[in-house]
Design a protein around this nucleic acid. Structure first.
Lengths: 222, 222
DNA sequence: TTCAGAATGTAACATTTGTTACACATCGAT
DNA sequence: ATCGATGTGTAACAAATGTTACATTCTGAA
């Protein structure tokens, strides 16, 4: 376990023994979870710090109509909802569900606070994590504020362009992307079709080829 | 100045003298600004902690087409962009402009870090502020994810309902609200008209009367 | 290989929102 | 009180997106 923790942003800069000492000064437990299990519901109080050790989690906002907007996926060794452990409104903002089997490290808030107080480097790391979360959410807002599907798609592609190539590797299905964009799947497909028609992109199975970078950029610059 | 700082979330729990001692151990300066002045552009690096002492600021995201989405207003004695001082992407997420004359306290990041290290209460306060920011942004995303103007309006009204009344006091013009919602002003006016037609609300000059709470809730629950 | 389930392309149509334009009301400064 | 700037109600029309439906292709497990 300490190998995993050592590579986590929270314990960055600490060696195995230091982590061991710190962790063993507080109460903690490991919880197993299985595929598709819901670990927390939106609105539930956040009482414990959680750090994903194995497996993959997904956070999605659920609207009142039952529809959902996938916000992000969480991979080890990241913390879960780090920005919701303190502050005035410590409630889960999303439904947290498992995409496969795995396990998480759980530390109650008071113990976690103690952990932070016990080592300045961990505290500093945590500060960076929380700030990073706020920045992630801020970018999410930037993204959601794009009005048209065309703009969202252009922004997405430009941000996922592989260095020095004209390729974007897709690790999402069109359906998955539509969820992230918060739009209907056929609507996204239509926009993709239009942009292929205009020779801006070529949509292949697992990747997208940018045929006309200038025009793609123009979508955001008009 | 210390009276103002004393009432700020950052120095909560400290008395004037303690604040005085802490502040005077680091470099700081006070900057005056005037109405409509732009204090920072979106994308600019955040190098300094800023705490609003007097006046009123506004943060707005500017999209590529020049349109804008007003994110929030900042009143004294709040910090400006507290969640963007640390972390991997410390750039202003919004254009920061003045809504009237005022002044801010400015502390360079290194000095601010020193300030945090010098007092555990201030550090703890800051942690709460940053978490609070992430939580604010998260709620913003919840809000933006509502699909229709009807839903946004219903959500807004239900969240601004004055305790134990059927009133919502408006401190925004319709135009201002349309900006916050990220929709066109006539579109919002149309939706308001429809909801008045249906006897759900009555829109008056500076307030809204809820006529049918059940139906208003039903908009989000359907 | 075969088959079922998932993902994709596409079309017709409905719904929502944006755009533009204009009349009118409101508010504050002179 | 008057004027101009700003906000508001409303309408007609355009544009974007959602909905539904169906055919086709892909994919992984038996």
């Amino acid at each position: 376990m300490f190998e995993i923790l050592k590579s986590s942003p929270l314990f960055k800069g600490l060696d195995n023994q230091e982590i061991n000492l710190l962790i063993n000064r507080v109460f903690y437990r490991i919880r197993q979870f299985s595929d598709k299990e819901v670990l927390a519901f939106s609105g539930e109080r956040v009482e414990r710090a959680m750090l994903l050790l194995e497996g993959k989690l997904q956070g999605e906002m659920v609207d009142y109509a039952g529809g959902s907007l996938k916000i992000e996926e969480i991979d080890p060794p990241q913390m879960v909802a780090p920005a919701f452990l303190y502050g005035p409104q410590s409630f889960f903002p999303v439904n947290l569900s498992a995409l496969c089997d795995g396990k998480i490290l759980i530390i109650a808030r008071n113990d976690f606070t103690q952990l932070l107080a016990n080592d300045h480097r961990v505290l500093n790391n945590y500060l960076n994590i929380v700030s990073g979360r706020a920045q992630f959410l801020s970018r999410k807002i930037t993204f959601l504020s794009f009005k048209t599907i065309r703009e969202k798609l252009a922004f997405y592609l430009l941000n996922h362009l592989k260095q020095d190539t004209m390729l974007v590797i897709l690790n999402q299905s069109q359906k998955g992307m539509a969820d992230i964009f918060g739009v209907a799947r056929p609507s996204l497909a239509r926009t993709i079709g239009e942009m292929e028609e205009e020779q801006i992109i070529r949509w292949e199975k697992n990747q997208v080829v940018i045929l006309n970078l200038k025009n793609l950029r123009a979508i955001l610059g008009k």
